[in-house]
């Protein structure tokens, strides 16, 4: 978990108040334990990308862009396309990221994403195959952290899902095979594209344990109070990845209650995200900085 330098000096009275209030099911900013802070989401913000999104959750700001390239599939999985995640921790986000400071967090985030998207039940890579064993689409999902204000896993997973939802894959008109040479002709009309199926794309919920209660979407002060958190990636009501952040350990019963909370919150998050994405109209004119 990332603790910013300004939060390290948070005074003990405030921390104690956080503890007390959480046990009463109300938090410093007036939320209940299972509530999220308001978030803002935009799609199609980067014109050079095939799909993009920007999410702002309180002070956390994430920009995700998807680029597509033609590649050869892995020999052991000739029928599948490729999907790769890259996380970039810009030093703009927090001074701690300067140099190689953000590397550990970046690796943790991209590992968690790639293991969440690995199962075929979650995201079907077979749709990205162009020609068995020879050609496939490769999706590069680049995640740029613009500002870090806690709860990164949730924010990144929502932004990634929105960017993939927004992604347009070019239609293929014809494939000419001449020996080992493969020639692909893409449809001339740039607007006739296929959309990806992202109904199963996982959403990650970080469940933070404070005292003997669990909360979601912790703010900076709350992150400091908690010893550890469980990241639950949920896809269609099933769990596709569980990971832990921080260094604390959990009792099995607490751990199970974290999972139950994670699933129910993810379900609500999923519903509201689908609703929001449905409201977005094509070619809606929105600026990056509004």
């Amino acid at each position: 978990m990332l603790i910013l330098s300004s939060e390290k000096t948070d005074n003990p009275a405030r921390i104690e108040r956080t503890y007390y209030l959480i046990s009463e099911n109300i938090r410093i900013d007036g939320r209940e334990r299972e509530d999220y802070r308001p978030m803002e989401i935009e799609t199609d913000v980067v014109s050079h990308a095939f799909g993009s999104s920007r999410l702002r959750l309180a002070n956390t700001d994430v920009l995700v862009a998807v680029k597509i390239e033609v590649d050869a599939p892995y020999p052991e999985r000739p029928l599948e396309g490729k999907l790769e995640f890259f996380v970039d921790c810009s030093a703009n986000a927090t001074p701690e990221f300067e140099g190689r400071g953000g590397e550990e967090l970046a690796v943790e985030l991209s590992n968690c994403l790639s293991s969440a998207y690995r199962s075929e039940e979650v995201f079907n890579l077979k749709k990205l195959c162009i020609m068995k064993g020879r050609k496939c689409w490769k999706l590069y999902v680049d995640i740029l952290l613009l500002e870090v204000g806690g709860n990164l896993f949730d924010a990144v997973s929502i932004a990634v899902k929105a960017a993939l939802w927004n992604t347009q894959i070019p239609k293929i008109k014809s494939i000419n095979v001449d020996g080992s040479n493969i020639d692909i002709q893409v449809c001339d009309d740039i607007f006739s594209c296929t959309k990806l199926d992202v109904t199963g794309a996982p959403l990650m919920v970080t469940v933070c344990k404070i005292g003997d209660k669990c909360i979601v979407d912790p703010n900076a002060a709350e992150e400091q109070c908690s010893v550890g958190a469980v990241v639950v990636a949920v896809s269609r009501g099933n769990i596709c990845t569980i990971s832990q952040t921080g260094t604390g350990s959990f009792h099995p019963d607490t751990f199970k209650s974290c999972l139950i909370l994670g699933i129910s919150v993810a379900q609500r998050l999923e519903d509201s995200l689908t609703e929001t994405l449905g409201e977005i109209k094509a070619n809606q004119d929105v600026g990056f900085l509004k």
Binding site: R118, S119, E121, V230, N238, I239, I242, F250, P252, L259
Partner: peptide, 26 residues
């Protein structure tokens, strides 16, 4: 951890239902 009976780390991949996971923890 053996004496404290605490989960020091839990990692899962794939696609599983909650029941299956709670059973597998036990």
């Amino acid at each position: 951890t053996s004496t404290h009976q605490q989960i020091s780390h839990f990692h899962q991949t794939g696609n599983l239902q909650l029941n299956t996971i709670t059973q597998s923890i036990d």
